[in-house]
C-alpha cells in the first residue's frame, strides 16, 4: 500500500534538513576560501551558477513530481 504524504514527509524530513544544512555549509566553505584569495570575494565558476539554478528548481511548484529529473538534466551536457 502506498504511504500517505505525511508518512513520506515523516521519513524524509530529517534527511532533507541535513542535506540542506550540508549544502549551506558547502557554499560557506567556498565563500570562506574565496575570501582568503587575492581577489577576495570575487570567485566565480559556472558550476556555482548551476547549483544556484538547482535551488530554484527545488522550490518551484510543479504539476509533475519530476524535480530529480530536472536537476539531472540541468547538470547534463546536452549539446
Amino acid at each position: 500500500m502506498m504511504q500517505t504524504a505525511l508518512q513520506v514527509l515523516d521519513r524524509e524530513y530529517l534527511e532533507a534538513r541535513c542535506s540542506l544544512v550540508e549544502l549551506g555549509a558547502a557554499f560557506d566553505r567556498v565563500d570562506r576560501a574565496s575570501d582568503h584569495e587575492e581577489n577576495a570575494g570575487e570567485f566565480n565558476d559556472s558550476r556555482l551558477e548551476l547549483l544556484k539554478q538547482a535551488l530554484g528548481i527545488l522550490t518551484e511548484e510543479s504539476h509533475l513530481p519530476n524535480r530529480a529529473e530536472r536537476l539531472l538534466l540541468l547538470f547534463s551536457d546536452l549539446d
Binding site: 530529517l14 534527511e15 541535513c18 544544512v21 550540508e22 555549509a25 558547502a26 560557506d28 566553505r29 570562506r32
Partner: peptide, 12 residues
C-alpha cells in the same frame, strides 16, 4: 549521520 553535526561541518 543526520541529526547533529557532520564531519565536514565539524572541520569548518
Amino acid at each position: 549521520p543526520i541529526t547533529k553535526c557532520t564531519p565536514k561541518r565539524a572541520v569548518d
